[in-house]
Design a protein around this nucleic acid. Sequence first.
RNA 1: UGCCCGAUGGUGUAAUGGCAGCACGACAGUUUUUGGUACUGUUUGUCUAGGUUCGAGUCCUGGUCGGGCAACCA
Length: 569
Amino acid sequence: MSDYKDGVKMSENKESLNFIEQIITDDLKEGKNDGRVHTRFPPEPNGYLHIGHAKSICLNFGLSQTFQGKCNLRFDDTNPVKEDVEYVDSIREDVHWLGFDWEDREFFASDYFEKLYQMAVKLIQKGKAYVCECSPEQIREFRGTPTVPGKESPYRNRPVEESLDLFQRMRAGEFEDGKYLLRAKIDMASPNMHMRDPIIYRIRHTHHHRTGDAWCIYPMYDFAHGLSDYIEGITHSVCTLEFEVHRPLYDWFLDQLAEANSRPRQIEFARLNMTYTIMSKRKLLQLVEQNHVDSWDDPRMPTISGLRRRGYTPDSIRKFAERIGVAKRENIIDVSLLEFSIREDLNKKANRAMAVLNPLKMVITNYPEGEQEILEAINNPEKPEEGKRKVPFSREIYIERDDFMEDPPKKFFRLAPGREVRLKYAYIIKCEDVVKDENGEIVEIRCTYDPTTKSGTGCKKKVKSTIHWVNAPTAIDAEVRLFDRLFLNENPDVAEDGKDFTSNINSDSLNILEHCKLEPSLNGAASGQGFQFERLGYFCVDSKLSSPESPVFNRTVTLKDSWAKINKK
RNA sequence: UGCCCGAUGGUGUAAUGGCAGCACGACAGUUUUUGGUACUGUUUGUCUAGGUUCGAGUCCUGGUCGGGCAACCA
């Protein structure tokens, strides 16, 4: 069951509010913003969205749902050299897929370029901004350091008229990149670096993915972001912790330029970090460009598109976001919590099927040759309404190589010479013989079956283990891709001296198995459709590589495996 | 050595001056034709030193530790 119904968060069994919900509740009590709650999700279209963005999306859209407000999608596209429409498209798709709807409120910071320009003009007129001619080196030098105050620019007291004229000519394209800058006139001695006459416009003769060549000056984040919030009537501007020191500047622009009585309020929360995972767009881009992964939607990537292709459901990701909570403390979430969330979801939703990844041929010597019978299998024990399906059975089947041991340790319950196990939905069989090739490798197991132990006939006989299998003559051949963590260490961001994070990459994160055997009901499974392969894990049809003629499945996540633990001891 | 922020079990997150709870993990058990699921139980925590108070995880002061801030990035 989804936790969302009619767009309203249903899990109101939670009795405590996170600190942002608390702030909004208090604001509402004080009658701020005429009782409105309006948030926004503001990605820069310079990369694909990842699980950290999912936290922010769930937060912002979730806030609008719990307070019956609105949430905008706004592309923060003020730096044309890094941005692209490819990213815009993927962001739209990913937010929708997660289950959120911004209705007709899709905006771009670039929509406001004219308004922002006019606001900048107003700032100059008020004597609160000036056109500066410092070089990048001079800017750096004059800025000072956190412990040393900055020095004022020689252009700081340029007459208003002159700044106005220059700014207008900057826009008109009279100057080359870097020749002039527009800066806010605040305080070069401020203990907050961001208040030391920050740059608000720079010249960049670059084609913009939306405005084309209409502009050659572009506003900086601090100027554009808060004012875009203001223009859209945002009430609560939620962002991550690193923007905390920007807040005084955010408020300063509003103090100078806001006229309406409703003003946005910036609130910062701690971004998501996850073990064995990299969460920076820049580094994710590097993984793609250096071919450490195939693409942004490689199933090993922590991107939303990667998780989707891996077999994660929107519900599982939203549940995960709810579980990890929202606070201001730096955090590192164990990736096993994400895995728990998808197992929990798929356990209830995914139909079961039998598949053998590493096939070992078994011949049931006392089963009549050439005969086949049809057995019934339960589609989902958690959902009886899913009913049953037919599974063929005959003299020759495949079992999992791991389910047989010639010389088993004490706690191994599965098949071994002389031992009995149940074949799921079929019969109890006994291993009579092991056939090996000239290298001593086991190539076939010969068994006998007990016809009185057929499943569903009320057989009382108990065996220690039930194993899955696939009927050999009707088996579908498939490729199955197993994934391991992309990084070897818990915190891949920190690498050994002199090395970058790519030195932590797990070179063995992709394991492609050919000629896996699937039960025939899996024929025609839809792209992206998820299944539980009994005893193995959750798998889905790969949306890019699979075809009806040669199916490809991705393993989303294994089942919890207590045997693996016992085996390790 | 400036400014800002933070600190609750292994990992997260609640407790709004009044019994430190929940989830995940770990461990043990019950059920089971998935060594899955479900269920039960166990385990481990308020950074530190003072202060205010009948009472402090919560308020105050000092310290310690961690994070952020010096792109014409966002």
